[in-house]
Simulated assay, not measured.
Amino acid sequence: MSEVRARKIIHVDMDAFYASVEQRDDPALRGRPVVVAWRGARSVVCAASYEARAYGVRSAMPAVRAERLCPQAVFVAPDFTRYRNVSRQVREIMLAHTDRVEPLSLDEAYLDVTDNKQQLASATEVAQRIRAEIRERLALTASAGVAPNKFLAKIASDWKKPDGLFVVRPREVLDFLAPLPVARLPGVGKVMDERLAALGVRSVAELRALPAAQLEARFGRYGRRLAELARGIDDQPVQPDRPTQSVSAEDTFAEDLPLAALDTHVARLADKAWTAARKTERVARTVVLKLKTREFRILTRSLTPPQPPASAQDLLACALLLRERIAEDPTVAPDTLYRLVGVGLANFHEADDPKLQPDLFGAQAS
């Protein structure tokens, strides 16, 4: 416990990154509601400026809904090559302070500054310096959270967005966490939030009041982690240069659905997974479809096409093909109902990897 509390972790999160880059590079966009997205019924919002967010526009929202919420928004097609170049510049600033940088995407990263290269007196000072350098050198803003561990730093970075800094000191951890909704904890999605609510647990303080053994008995190994998170314990180290292995999006339905009713959900999740995958510089070779039946049986199918998916539409086409393979599987009853569907990308390679050359592969499926 003392070792974890001794760590000094920063989470840096660029503010409305893609939209901010567009506004920086095109003065005509400054002060206007900017939505970074392709137009189209199946497109999703990659980023929204704070002016657009004032109208309720959010990342991963369908682009058509964003247009309804903010008819005056300026839609800009994403330029991921440019965003990657800016992300590298941000990374260079971080690496000048510590080699222990764990990128989460193009616009956010964890830093372990328990020891820092510039010999600055505190993690707070390191965070202030990094934010100042990003502003001065790149004309962009970043928010940061400073805490004894990763999950607390990530929560803290969102506390004073945009262009903010929030510090959670070791002695403040329990008080900081107590009033937060349990949904702020890592891994607590909609379904887990509802299961905890059924126990009368809404806040972290209420979660902390439950014995760890009770949580473990009810939720298995994750119950033990919940007990630790409620007490501010997180032993996960910052892992520099960890390459992306897979990206996925999944959803649990309010009521079980037949296979034929899943297309719209698969399309939405394909858009969401594609948006997440575009935040990494690596290229995915394999498409994965995951289904969970009413009886909690998990069905997973994958496809490695001759060429990597080049768009959300390509990803969706592969996912629907995998759905058809499940429909044709004699081991799966035609009247099976499903409680969850997920769409993912896996088998990531560097963009210049020769294995990505299409003439080396035929389509592979499993």
Results as ranks from 00 to 15, higher is better:
residue 304 T to S: 09
residue 59 S to P: 02
residue 341 V to E: 05
residue 186 P to H: 06
residue 346 A to G: 10
residue 211 P to I: 00
residue 72 Q to H: 03
residue 284 A to Y: 02
residue 274 W to S: 09
residue 58 R to M: 14
residue 279 K to L: 08
residue 336 T to M: 02
residue 226 L to Y: 07
residue 34 V to S: 12
residue 22 E to Q: 02
residue 11 H to R: 09
residue 4 V to K: 04
residue 134 I to T: 11
residue 320 L to A: 06
residue 123 A to H: 10
residue 340 L to P: 09
residue 335 D to G: 07
residue 360 L to M: 10
residue 263 D to A: 05
residue 69 L to M: 01
residue 165 L to Q: 10
residue 155 I to H: 03
residue 238 V to G: 07
residue 27 P to H: 02
residue 312 A to F: 14
residue 329 D to P: 01
residue 107 D to K: 04
residue 234 D to Q: 05
residue 14 M to N: 11
residue 211 P to V: 04
residue 258 P to F: 13
residue 307 Q to H: 14
residue 42 R to F: 10
residue 275 T to K: 08
residue 286 T to D: 09
residue 281 E to A: 13
residue 220 G to T: 05
residue 120 L to C: 01
residue 330 P to G: 06
residue 63 A to H: 15
residue 256 D to T: 08
residue 182 V to D: 05
residue 207 L to V: 10
residue 25 D to L: 00
residue 61 M to V: 08
residue 143 S to I: 03
residue 70 C to V: 00
residue 197 A to F: 04
residue 253 F to P: 13
residue 98 T to W: 05
residue 43 S to Y: 11
residue 107 D to L: 00
residue 207 L to F: 04
residue 112 D to C: 03
residue 220 G to Y: 01
residue 350 E to S: 11
residue 204 V to T: 03
residue 20 S to F: 00
residue 81 T to Y: 08
residue 193 D to G: 15
residue 277 A to Y: 05
residue 258 P to R: 14
residue 72 Q to L: 00
residue 96 A to R: 11
residue 362 G to E: 15
residue 70 C to A: 10
residue 85 N to P: 06
residue 276 A to Q: 11
residue 101 V to P: 14
residue 288 V to R: 01
residue 326 I to N: 03
residue 61 M to T: 11
residue 343 V to D: 14
residue 100 R to G: 04
residue 88 R to W: 11
residue 341 V to I: 06
residue 139 A to D: 15
residue 335 D to A: 13
residue 80 F to L: 12
residue 197 A to I: 11
residue 355 K to L: 11
residue 307 Q to R: 09
residue 134 I to P: 02
residue 361 F to C: 03
residue 122 S to N: 02
residue 359 D to H: 13
residue 34 V to G: 08
residue 209 A to V: 09
residue 288 V to M: 06
residue 120 L to I: 02
residue 271 D to A: 15
residue 189 G to H: 05
residue 36 V to M: 12
residue 366 S to C: 12
residue 59 S to C: 12
residue 363 A to D: 15
residue 115 D to K: 08
residue 336 T to S: 07
residue 9 I to F: 07
residue 7 R to N: 12
residue 253 F to S: 13
residue 269 L to S: 06
residue 190 K to E: 15
residue 182 V to E: 02
residue 219 F to K: 10
residue 118 Q to A: 13
residue 328 E to K: 14
residue 291 L to T: 00
residue 224 R to T: 12
residue 355 K to C: 07
residue 115 D to T: 09
